[in-house]
Simulated assay, not measured.
Amino acid sequence: MKAVIPPRNHRTEKRQCDWFVYKERHLIECFFGKIKHFRRIFVRFEKLQRNFMGFLRFVSALIWLR
C-alpha cells in the first residue's frame, strides 16, 4: 500500500505524488460516500452474501444512471 495524498503547499521539500492514482482513489471514496445514502447497504439488512451483492449491484447501477 502506498500513500497517494499530495503534499501541502507550504512544505519546503515537495514529495512526489501520482496524480492518476490520486484521481482514482478520489472516485472510489466518492462512490462509497454515495453508497452510504442507501440505508439498506449501509446497515447491511441483507445477511446472505448473494442478496447483499445483488442489492449492491442494483445501487451501483442507480448511481451510474444518475
Score class of each variant (00 low, 15 high):
F42T: 05
L27M: 14
G54Y: 01
W19I: 08
V21S: 09
F20K: 13
S60R: 01
F20M: 11
R66F: 13
I35D: 01
F45V: 10
Y22S: 10
I35L: 06
F38D: 02
K36C: 04
C30M: 12
P7C: 11
N9A: 14
V4T: 06
H10W: 15
F42I: 01
F55L: 07
L27T: 11
R57C: 12
K23P: 01
V21P: 01
W64S: 12
K23H: 11
R44P: 02
L27Q: 14
N51D: 08
C30R: 14
F52Q: 01
H37Q: 11
Y22P: 00
F55N: 00
K36A: 04
E24Y: 10
D18W: 06
F32T: 03
F20W: 11
G54M: 00
E29Q: 04
I28P: 03
E46Y: 05
E13L: 13
G54F: 01
Q16N: 14
R66E: 15
I63E: 00
E29H: 04
E29W: 03
H10F: 12
Q16V: 07
I63K: 00
L65M: 14
N9D: 14
W19H: 09
L56M: 08
R44E: 05
R25S: 12
G54I: 00
H26V: 08
R40D: 05
N51H: 09
I28N: 07
E24C: 10
R50G: 04
L62A: 09
G54A: 02
Q49H: 11
W64G: 06
K36D: 05
I41K: 00
R25P: 02
K2G: 11
F55C: 06
Y22M: 10
L65D: 15
